[in-house]
Simulated scan of single mutants.
Amino acid sequence: MDISKNNVWKTLASFFMVLFAMPLGHALMIMMENWMTPTAMHYAAFTMGAVGLVMVIIGVFAQGDTRQTLWGLFGGLLFWTGWIEFILMYYARRYGVQPEMVNGEVVTKPEYLLFPATFGFWAMFMLLYLFSAKTGCNFFNWCQKVFFGNKKNAIVVRPMTRHTSIVTFMELNMILWTSYLLLMFCYDSHFLGDHHPVTFLVGLGCFIGAIFMFIRQLKISSWGANIRFSIATVIVFWVPVEILGRVNFFKEIWTEPAEHQTEMIILLVAFILLAAGIGYASYKKKTDRKKSGPDNAPTV
């Protein structure tokens, strides 16, 4: 496999930028819970989700694949945290949903216990993508090939209107949603349980899958496409992280950010530097391309 150094840098930068966003998102929720009154927290969370939605829409009108991807990514993260997780938290608290307790310790917060109830909505979205989206996603292409066979092109005739910001936004939310449903199914003792062998096999399978995805990602030379692929790679990789944290294999510092301020600040600084570096690299590449002029532009 011919991999340029540039692709290695792009892949590592994209992967770690998205990866660092995961613990930072968890830490943000914990800090808002601990440092804000419930009323102020929910108003702030609703505003956060609204800002995220506006960012995604701004990304539709942004110029350049990388910029659109970043608008969709950051907007999607704020949207998921503010309008998905915090709204579930609000209604869980409002109607007195109790957390799952083991030996007097909270192992699953009430809002996450509500996630399995969204399975029908998730299936509805999956049906839309399966039958109505001609996409570059390997997973959906495989599903369409399995279910439709030679009739694939007749059933899935054309792609939906493609806005990179919306594509990134939906990719992030759908994969996060799928991962949460998978984890909550595995953790549920009525089905498997967090110490069940199948749960560990799910984690192992996701870890191995993430490795293969990362290797495939090394071939992607475009910043925007590399970042979008990183979203899938990181979330799949995060599944075994969640499972191992659940069984206390290691200490999840992002669940107690106040006790691990130095580590969280390092993650935040690294995240900002990577995002800024990716933005600058994309801008520089675009500027260099303009300076080269149409005479030096590659033919298609």
Rank of each mutant, 00 (worst) to 15 (best):
A27F: 07
M101N: 03
F121N: 10
G104P: 05
G82R: 09
V107W: 14
G96V: 05
K291D: 06
P23V: 14
P298F: 15
S132A: 05
T118F: 07
E242Q: 11
F229P: 01
T108V: 15
N153V: 03
L28W: 14
G59N: 06
C206F: 09
Y90M: 12
P116R: 01
D65C: 00
V241G: 00
M41I: 13
W9E: 13
E100R: 11
S179V: 05
G224D: 10
M174N: 13
Y283H: 07
A27I: 02
I272M: 13
M89E: 15
I57L: 13
T199I: 07
R162G: 00
N150K: 07
A45H: 04
W71C: 10
R93S: 13
L273H: 03
I227F: 13
I166H: 08
Q63T: 04
F20M: 05
K10F: 01
Y180H: 09
L204G: 07
I166Y: 05
H190N: 13
E256V: 14
D288E: 13
V239F: 08
G224E: 11
K109N: 11
E33G: 14
F61D: 01
S222A: 15
L268N: 09
L183D: 06
A270F: 13
M89A: 12
G82W: 06
G293N: 03
W142H: 09
C186E: 09
W80Y: 09
L12T: 04
L130Q: 11
M29F: 12
V146W: 04
L218M: 11
M213W: 04
P23Q: 10
F249D: 01
V60F: 14
E85K: 12
V236T: 08
G245K: 00
W177C: 10
F74G: 15
G52H: 04
N248D: 07
D194Q: 11
R162P: 00
G193P: 14
L181Y: 03
K10S: 08
A258I: 02
K5E: 04
A50K: 00
F74V: 15
M1D: 03
D65M: 02
F16R: 11
G245D: 03
L182E: 04
K219D: 07
I166L: 12
F125V: 01
F79D: 13
E105K: 14
T47Q: 12
E85M: 15
G52W: 03
G205T: 02
M55C: 04
L268T: 13
L19T: 05
D194M: 09
G82D: 04
F16N: 09
M160E: 10
M29R: 10
P159Q: 06
P23G: 08
L204Y: 08
S189V: 13
V234K: 05
M55A: 06
A276G: 12
L201R: 15
G72K: 10
M184C: 04
G75S: 07
T11V: 02
